[in-house]
Amino acid sequence: MMLQFEFLLRLIIAGICGVLIGYERKSRMKEAGVRTHFVVAVGASLMMVVSKYGFDDILGKDGVGLDPSRIAAQVVSGVSFLGAGMIFLQRQTVKGLTTAAGVWTTAGIGLALGSGLYTIGVGVTLLILVGQKMLHRQFRWLSAPKSEQLILRIENEPDMMGAIQRTLLSRNISILNFHAEKMDKDESEIELSMLVKLPGSYPAAELLSLIQEIQGVKAVEMQ
């Protein structure tokens, strides 16, 4: 009975670690939040406990041979499918990769705690939290080009596209691809979808202000 209370303690610690990682994701308005990470961590920890200790009563019997790692291995595969459902393509931009990887790692933390590796499980939780906080800050040595998806409603004028391109190039912003089509009700306006590449040091928030200053731009939205 005391051993089962220890197993329950492992599940509780796994749940706490899952909540911490989930809160960090939820605070950034990501797809999977506190509840998802909590359930994944506790579930993975439970499966690990069952995988290691759930068959003790039949071990040693004639003709019985068990691999205690099989259930844990299936958790890794199963959570991979769960993570794949969080990845989606939005206007040629892939989103949800970090969240999917976070859920997969949370399952690993649950497995570690379920097997009794408290130091590793808690240590990886702290490592993930610190890493996410640090890597979301602006470090010049980590600056890299970023891409943003823009939806513009512009006047149907001959040089509008050229004016937009010149304005962007003046800030070293390049257009990766674009698609334009006339508005259904009003052919004097065009809806323009653009994927642009920003320099690593250029704040994405200033991009909207830059676009809005262009004469002939009626509305702009960042996806």
Rank of each mutant, 00 (worst) to 15 (best):
D62E: 15
G116F: 04
K95G: 12
M2Y: 14
I16V: 14
V124M: 14
A73I: 08
E155A: 13
F178T: 07
L152C: 13
Q4G: 06
S69G: 14
S143C: 01
S174W: 02
A72G: 11
G121Q: 08
L11D: 03
Q74R: 07
R166C: 09
T105C: 14
V79D: 00
V130Q: 02
N172I: 07
L20K: 02
T36Q: 00
R140I: 09
T98P: 13
L111C: 06
P199W: 01
G85I: 02
L176K: 11
I164V: 13
E157N: 11
Q74P: 15
A219V: 09
T106D: 01
L97N: 07
Q223S: 08
A100H: 02
M160R: 03
K61Y: 15
A219P: 15
I21G: 06
V130P: 12
I109H: 00
F38Q: 01
L207S: 12
D62I: 13
Q223V: 08
R28A: 10
E157D: 13
M47F: 11
L129R: 04
V79W: 00
K218H: 04
A163S: 14
E31K: 14
S193P: 12
L46I: 04
I128S: 08
K52I: 07
M1H: 09
V122P: 03
Q132W: 05
L176I: 07
A144E: 09
L113K: 05
L66M: 11
I190V: 10
G22N: 07
G200C: 03
Q132R: 04
K30H: 13
G22W: 02
G200M: 02
M194E: 06
L127C: 10
Y118R: 04
V75I: 08
T99V: 12
V42S: 07
L129I: 07
A44K: 06
L59R: 15
S170N: 14
I128P: 00
T125C: 08
K146E: 01
R25T: 00
G131A: 08
D62Y: 13
A107F: 00
M29G: 14
A204I: 10
T125V: 00
L208H: 09
M134P: 15
S188F: 01
W141C: 11
Y202N: 03
A73Y: 07
K133G: 12
S209I: 10
L192I: 04
L59W: 14
N156P: 14
E6A: 08
T106F: 02
M29W: 09
T93G: 08
L135M: 12
V42M: 13
W104Y: 11
G43P: 04
T167Q: 15
T93W: 05
V94R: 09
I164F: 03
M222P: 15
I71E: 03
E221Y: 13
V34W: 11
R35Q: 06
G200Q: 06
L9V: 05
